[in-house]
Amino acid sequence: MNNNLHIITADTVREILDQYPLELYEIIKNSYILHDQQGSINAPSSFLFFPHRPESRIIALPAAIKPNQEKFNEISGIKWIASYPNNKLKHMPRASAIIILNHPDTGFPMVCMEGSLISATRTALSGIVGAEYLYNKDKSCKSLGLVGNGFIAKHIVKYLFLLGWKIENIHLYDKFSSSVEDFRQYIQSFGDLKITIHDSVSTLIESCSLIAFTTTEKIPYLNDHNLFKHKPCILHISLRDISPDIILDSINVVDDSEHILAANTSVHLAYERNKKDASFITATIGQVVQQKQTIPKNKTIVYSPMGLGILDLSVSQFVYDKVKKQDLKNIENFFPS
């Protein structure tokens, strides 16, 4: 028995993720197909909330890939991710995470790796899968809006450009002006792009055909149906920005039709408002990718990916397989003999 535990730190994770954007995109897309075909196990996420610190939370996402899958090896593991928005005031990242992968035969943890970069990457790429299959397969966008200009938004922009998207105009809104300015400078590193900064989320929505929400809001605040009369495509990454009434009046695509009905997401609140009838959910993204379901464009499209643990696992497994070919850091005799 091997008593060692492998360790993969942020620098190594970042190096791997930056080298393989196309491969990672395919991994996320295939993970959705795998999930739709019941090749994965995604246990419900567990949320740890703090009455004395209501803005913060820590989430556990356990998952597994079943044996004998065409494009994936059997694996299990968990992501443990903290979200502390007030860390910004301390000049620290909002999110921190680790991911542990377990051996499929023994259950012993094989590797512990930095997880916030993997989490941000899979979150961004899951949104981009939605953009391609719900907005435009030609990978072009005249007006992209980004509500919330932090870590996840940066990853969305990064991977859009790495994956060859052509974007004419980028619109920004964040309630923290420092975040907007920092994000503007980051975007300009990709070239001479037209960037518009908005003083309100309303004007941004009205100006854009594709909008990504990556805020830390806990209660839906967008209630005006008129803001969406131009029928945009919404990548509702942060899950709690749009009111239940607007959700019910839109075409809804999710990553998992059961997991999304929890934790006071906008879709969950719409489900409760709709007398616990989930028929307003049109499809899962896995169904759309496999062309099992065609999505009409006669209404606003809202894509709400709850965030499946299988995405973290599949990306982590890819990183681990790459690093195993190099020198792994070990903690020897971590487990008892």
Rank of each mutant, 00 (worst) to 15 (best):
N2E: 09
N2I: 03
N3F: 13
L5V: 03
H6D: 14
I7H: 07
I7M: 08
T12E: 08
V13I: 09
I16K: 09
L17M: 06
L17Y: 04
L17V: 07
D18L: 13
E23Y: 07
E23G: 09
I27M: 06
S31H: 02
S31Y: 04
L34R: 01
D36G: 14
G39F: 01
I41G: 08
S45H: 10
S46T: 11
P51M: 00
H52W: 01
R53C: 00
E55A: 06
E55M: 04
I58G: 15
A60Q: 10
A63G: 06
F72N: 01
G77S: 05
I78T: 11
I81T: 01
I81S: 05
N86S: 10
L89G: 13
H91P: 00
M92H: 06
R94A: 01
I99Y: 10
L101D: 09
M110C: 11
E114P: 01
S116I: 06
I118S: 04
S119Q: 06
S119F: 10
A131N: 08
E132F: 02
L134W: 06
N136T: 15
K139S: 10
G145P: 02
G145E: 05
G145F: 05
L146C: 11
V147I: 14
V147E: 01
G148L: 02
N149D: 09
F151N: 06
A153I: 02
L160N: 05
L160S: 07
L163G: 04
W165G: 03
W165F: 03
W165Y: 06
K166V: 08
E168L: 12
S179W: 03
E181S: 09
F183G: 06
R184E: 15
F190W: 03
L193H: 12
I195D: 07
S200W: 00
S207K: 10
L210S: 00
F213N: 01
P220F: 02
Y221P: 09
N223Q: 11
N223C: 09
H230K: 05
H230Y: 01
K231H: 14
P232L: 01
I234M: 05
L235P: 11
L235D: 12
H236L: 03
L239K: 12
R240K: 13
D241Y: 03
I242Q: 07
D245V: 13
L248G: 11
S250G: 06
V253P: 05
S257N: 15
E258L: 07
A263Y: 15
A263G: 04
N264T: 12
N264E: 14
S266Q: 08
L269D: 04
R273P: 00
K276Y: 14
D277S: 03
T282Y: 12
T284F: 01
T294P: 00
P296G: 09
P296Y: 13
N298I: 11
S304D: 03
L311W: 04
L313R: 03
S314F: 05
Q317L: 14
Q317N: 08
Y320A: 04
D321V: 07
V323H: 10
D327C: 10
L328F: 12
K329M: 13
K329P: 12
E332K: 15
E332M: 12
F334Y: 15
F335A: 04
S337G: 07
